[in-house]
Design a protein around this nucleic acid. Structure first.
Lengths: 216, 216
DNA sequence: GCTAACTTGTGAATCAATTCACAAGACAGC
DNA sequence: GCTGTCTTGTGAATTGATTCACAAGTTAGC
């Protein structure tokens, strides 16, 4: 397969969300034009994005909503339920552990870890917080797919190394630093301060800054 | 000014963070090469990014760390303290209200609002949660710069309309939908589910997916 | 079956971002 | 002051992403 741009993958996720809306409303087919209008893009963009993975539409008619929904779930790997562990039960970790959006989309929070003895044993939305000392044992035994790292920056690299050693191949990092990971590990870093500074720049530089918001 | 790409602004934020590290370590000058190595990019990229805003270096020598730090703060609009309001004191709103990273970077959380009477009156890190009924009055009186929206999706557009009517010109949106805002309002949407689905795609599609993580 | 109205899928063209490559300036050593 | 070594700033070239534009299917109406 050709290399797929990250922007394309983001849009596929959006298309899937829109398709689910259309499906709920009982629509059975949809055109690239309708999908584009809903997502703030162009019909050519929609068709190009999909064309990387095959041709799913019928000329003159559009796309079958249930079929395209299924195809997108396949492409995005959302058919299986991914096991997620969260390391760091601070404010952000706790918020994520209870975030409904994850569950809805097939991401199951299998375990939460923290180094603070006061937090260990507490329950977050049905999941007990375990000691960080158990991280290696639990990870090796239950082979989670994705690790969400919400520990302070100084501890993040050590945690990343541990989960990678235990076989985790995808990391979502909330610590404000550049984690070093092997090429075979997928990494996404979310940095709130960076987003806010983008807004600060836009406010300071007026319409020259004009930021494109492609995440919704 | 020419239009500045969002990716450029993100990198400027990163450069600033790195410069602060170098400054703390007592370095007085730095080359585009060193900055690039720290940020996982190339020296040409660093110089090009800076060149949009002026020429701040000395040939043969590099950049003065304190000077470039100051220039970047100016460019990013971080000289003044921005007033931030958070609407929605749920898990994510509460986590953000207490996030140290914001304060450190000059973003002051001036008020938090929620519609749940049980939450109103509670204190989050020194800020009292107010009733959503007060949103318009407080916003009009204290003219905050940035509104962070962490309410459920069905309420987000209404909240956005309210804060825009009251003069807010930048919104950071955590609700999973595309807010409609006038061109003059800067908007950034953060969608956790979208990030996780990016990881899901990478896991399912192996190294073809190879995602570039430019946020750290 | 024929026509008209749609809509896809995709090469070609355009637009945008990154990287290359080098002239020009700055300093250190002598 | 001259030479050698660095490093910037920036047009030119390249690479990558988006948009255009149209041939090729598909359906509905008659």
């Amino acid at each position: 397969m050709k290399h797929i741009a990250e922007s394309t993958v983001r849009r596929l996720s959006l298309y899937l969300r829109f398709l689910e809306e259309f499906e709920a409303r009982g629509h059975t087919t949809i055109s690239s034009d309708e999908l584009a209008a809903r997502g703030g893009t162009t019909s050519a963009q929609v068709r190009k994005d999909l064309s990387f993975f095959g041709s799913f539409g019928k000329r003159g008619l559009g796309y079958s909503v249930p079929e395209l929904t299924g195809r997108l779930r396949e492409i995005l790997g959302l058919q299986k339920e991914w096991r997620v562990i969260i390391i760091g039960a601070g404010k952000i970790g706790a918020a994520l552990a209870q975030y409904e959006g994850f569950r809805q989309r097939g991401f199951h929070v299998a375990a939460v870890f923290d180094s603070d003895p006061a937090k260990v044993g507490q329950t977050l939305d049905g999941v007990v917080v375990r000691s960080i000392a158990e991280l290696e044992r639990v990870t090796t035994r239950e082979h989670p797919d994705i690790a969400v790292i919400t520990v302070p920056a100084h501890a993040a690299q050590r945690v990343a190394d541990q989960v990678i050693a235990a076989g985790v191949r995808a990391i979502m990092n909330f610590a404000p630093l550049r984690l070093q990971v092997p090429e075979s590990v997928a990494l996404k870093t979310v940095n709130m301060a960076l987003e806010l500074e983008g807004l600060s720049f836009a406010l300071s530089n007026g319409r020259d800054a004009e930021l494109r918001d492609s995440n919704s």
